[in-house]
Nucleic acid binder design. Structure first.
Lengths: 170, 170
DNA sequence: GGCTATAGTTGGCACTGACAACTAACGAGG
DNA sequence: CCTCGTTAGTTGTCAGTGCCAACTATAGCC
């Protein structure tokens, strides 16, 4: 009974799960966007700027192009986000030694400190959210979210224009 | 001091879960933001506008203030988002019969149709993401995400300014 | 040396999001 | 009835986002 048969029951279940998950994810994403806005912006940096800083600290150093694709943003947008971070002294642009076209982006000490501070705040929030859950549930939640992010990235990260294949009849 | 946890082991587990969940959720939220940008914008409407339309269709009709708090946005922002939807003919403003101060917002037929179309697209995407998962896993995922959204909303929806209690020394 | 491809930047535009200042209508109290 | 405080929305302003398209500069190839 665990085989992936195309029975009407299985179909109905998939439909229901799709709808339910869609609703739940919508809520979740909305709440986290709100949290990010509120939690990050009191630190002299915007949400997108924070994502960029995070990506840079994590990676150590990136070209503008790779940063853009990490953030799934246009290069022009990314360039301006970096402008802001550069202006505020959190990130430094240097020319790549082997290829003068590429810009090497690295977080400054100041940038790393800020990143650390914000990360601490966000982790505190996260802990507050989940500490009420029983340990097993928490653990399972982590697994599920991770898996979901992976699957979604595989499906979605791939399609650049519009809605992919189905839909979007313009 | 803040938490009276049982054992150091449990503490460590909580820390690890917090970190892991934070990473996973960050990824998840990023991917879904991207999906929304790409999936919605080919329909003559922006992401925020779509969220607003969705809230209106769901609720049937809302005042501007309640729409703002549903979306967790400032009233001024909300007003302008509604401007755009109004201009495009997806939403109508009417004066509330009992209180001439409040604006009743309702989706037009056009608005409901657009909503339906976009919803279909997003559900198709969602289905594509999860249809590869075994049915039990899917079901569990729905439960977990729902629970997480609920817990997060309780914790986060509450704190309006800045980061809540900890951090944010301005 | 000239050509094409690649990496980034800049211009332009619509929109987002916040705060503050404003207008309009409701609801007491006098 | 009129005034005052409150509540609901709108508008002004400003920084930032995000896209496309046009541009500059360097690299790599013939």
């Amino acid at each position: 009974m665990t085989t992936q048969t195309a029975t009407p029951t299985a179909d109905a279940a998939l439909e229901r799960d799709t709808r339910d998950l869609y609703e739940a994810l919508t809520d979740l994403v909305r709440v986290y966007q709100f949290r990010d806005r509120n939690c990050i912006c009191c630190h002299d940096i915007s949400v997108t700027q924070c994502y960029a800083l995070d990506a840079l600290v994590r990676a150590g150093s990136l070209s503008l192009g790779s940063l853009a694709s990490t953030l799934m943003l246009d290069k022009s947008t990314t360039s301006r986000v970096v402008d802001a971070l550069d202006r505020k002294g959190y990130v430094k642009r240097t020319v790549h030694p082997d290829d003068a076209r590429v810009v090497r982006l690295t977080a400054t000490i100041r940038g790393r400190n800020l990143h650390q501070t914000i990360r601490r705040d966000l982790l505190n929030e996260e802990r507050a959210v989940i500490e009420s859950l029983p340990a097993e549930v928490r653990r399972a939640t982590v697994g599920v979210v991770r898996e979901l992010a992976k699957v979604a990235a595989k499906r979605i990260g791939r399609v650049a224009p519009c809605c992919g294949d189905d839909a979007c009849e313009t």
